[in-house]
Design a protein around this nucleic acid. Structure first.
Lengths: 203, 203
DNA sequence: TTAAACACTAAACACTGTTCATTAACTTTG
DNA sequence: CAAAGTTAATGAACAGTGTTTAGTGTTTAA
């Protein structure tokens, strides 16, 4: 088993090497700004070598999306510590928005960039995303169970809150808030979050 | 004035020819999927000719964005007919979402695609967008004036509603609703719109 | 030791946005 | 009307992109 397992290990190491370089470059220059040649140069291999480890650029895209999903999960995880479902939900929302604002590149990758057509459902990144989404929906369900809302339509409540948070983050990071002066944007976002929390309370 | 005015007219016609082809191609294949060469081929000119009428691709982008903004304004305009500000606001929101769902390519252009860096503020498309946004904010203000909300923070109310609508549309058109079965998505969006309306009523 | 498997790469292909020298047509002037 | 000047259009090139392929040298297995 010595040789084959070593080879497998080496293959895995190479994939990591490529991915780490890709993620670093991507966070510096954005997804579209990074070429296979850039990545190859960064790891001091020829561009063709990349294709021995990843079928094409979109496979790298999916692998990066998985990385981003893991980082996002880690960012949101502390919210789970809150006992009270309503507090948990608020903290979840706050952290979701905070993640998007602090890591626009990763948020972009996860929720904005047009993903390659192939069945994303089968990709690991998607499963991880589903899991995080499920945690969110469960938290909303816990609030519903605790009679925190008048409405009991968990699905719609969760989706509505998500729409707001996603809209807030994506308008921000795709620079569609230019009608508000730069220094006011973050504060407006904060006020809006407080408002949606208030709105949800009387839901 | 004969010749120079004719030349100007011809120049304008050529710009229109380019833009119409660009918009048509763009709606077929998406912005990134359309190259200068595609446009040139469509109008049966050489690629270099395009550059005699538009400085670069981003200038075509801005021109297309203006077209999209005009189409969006026309789509939203009927909402202005409603006398009651609250009904006007609801209709505005409904039409905003409807526009995004019916014309994902145009919505993309207006609110999602990463716009070229140059000062978009000076572009006509931006002014048109500002005007439509102003109409929206005015409608919210009219609701506030009519004591329709407890809150009087017009800016935050408008922004919060916009966040929800934008989030709803952009999650949909960038295919981030795969956890919901295809046939349920539109209905979920509808329920969410109704819910945000209800939430706003008790705002 | 020889044959097969493997990791790797240089070079090519068909694209992309963009620039520039050159050509061809039109407009103005002598 | 012909010569000079202006302008529209282009072919060819540059530097970049993702991707494929034929070929190299090394490592493993028989």
């Amino acid at each position: 088993m010595g040789i084959t397992s070593r080879k497998e290990r080496e293959k895995e190491e190479m994939r990591r090497l490529i991915l780490d370089a890709a993620l670093r470059l991507f966070r510096e220059k954005g997804f579209d700004g990074v070429s296979i040649r850039n990545i190859a140069e960064a790891i001091e291999y020829s561009p063709a070598t990349i294709y021995l480890y990843y079928k094409d650029k979109s496979e790298i895209y999916f692998a990066l999306q998985f990385e981003a999903a893991a980082l996002k999960r880690d960012h949101l995880l502390p919210a789970a510590a809150f006992e009270d479902p309503w507090q948990r939900l608020i903290e979840f929302g706050r952290r979701y928005i905070d993640f998007g604002m602090k890591h626009p590149d990763l948020y972009d990758l996860l929720f904005i960039i047009r993903s390659p057509m192939e069945s994303i459902e089968n990709q690991d990144c998607w499963k991880l995303g589903i899991a995080t989404h499920a945690f969110f929906v469960e938290t909303v369900q816990a609030c519903v169970d605790a009679r925190h809302f008048k409405s009991t339509d968990t699905e719609t409540i969760a989706y509505t809150l998500w729409c707001h948070a996603h809209g807030l983050v994506s308008l921000f990071i795709r620079e569609r808030m230019r009608m508000y002066p730069e220094e006011k944007r973050a504060e407006l976002a904060k006020r809006s979050f407080d408002m949606i929390v208030k709105m949800a309370e009387s839901l």
